[in-house]
């Protein structure tokens, strides 16, 4: 079976019509569904948070059968993810797409578990520490996209689980947990 790095590709990745946007409704629905699953799977395992439509993206082309997704097809598949709440466009021109293989609520739960596991219920951490500190090493939070992290933290702030306070620069925004 074909692999992309350490990612195992399904058999149909070598099926040429998989790379052409199908015009017939039923066929296209199935095609879109298969692409959505594959994109989420790939991003989850490869820890990819943002897909740029105009940049090279390994999943969107198959050198073995010499097929590449057209721009229209890329946008169609990502839009399908957006409409399900599993992705968000980062700009109006639909050039960058944020992939939410965990929804924001799920990320918030992960942060809560992380805080509890590390006994940080009443501590203060910078945002950067959550992303790349020693505590988060080996967890899903390690290397998390800043935009996603901030969205999850704000969600928790609304629920009164923590307070975000500004430092002198954007880099040292701090979080005061109060769980």
């Amino acid at each position: 079976m074909q692999k992309l790095g350490d990612f195992k590709l399904p058999h149909f990745f070598n099926y040429p019509p998989y790379f052409t946007l199908q015009p017939v409704r039923d066929t296209r629905e199935k095609q879109v569904q298969l692409w959505k699953e594959l994109i989420l799977d790939y991003c989850r395992t490869q820890k990819i948070f943002v897909i740029g439509l105009e940049e090279e993206f390994p999943l969107f082309s198959n050198p073995v059968i010499e097929r590449t997704l057209s721009h229209e097809a890329r946008e169609a598949f990502l839009s399908a993810l957006v409409s399900e709440g599993r992705a968000e466009w980062l700009d109006k021109g639909h050039r960058k797409c944020l992939i939410l293989w965990h929804r924001i609520q799920e990320w918030a739960d992960i942060i809560l578990n992380f805080v509890k596991d590390n006994g940080l219920e009443d501590s203060v951490m910078t945002v950067e520490e959550i992303r790349s500190g020693t505590e988060s090493r080996g967890t899903e939070l390690s290397g998390i996209d800043r935009t996603i992290l901030m969205r999850a933290l704000k969600l928790l702030e609304q629920k009164g689980k923590l307070a975000i306070f500004k430092g002198t620069s954007a880099d040292d925004e701090g979080v005061k947990f109060s769980i």
């Binding site: 195992k8 058999h11 199935k30 298969l34």
Partner: peptide, 10 residues
């Protein structure tokens, strides 16, 4: 496409 199971792509 109809032959492929979306819940078990492999």
């Amino acid at each position: 496409f109809p032959e492929i199971d979306p819940n078990g792509v492999y």
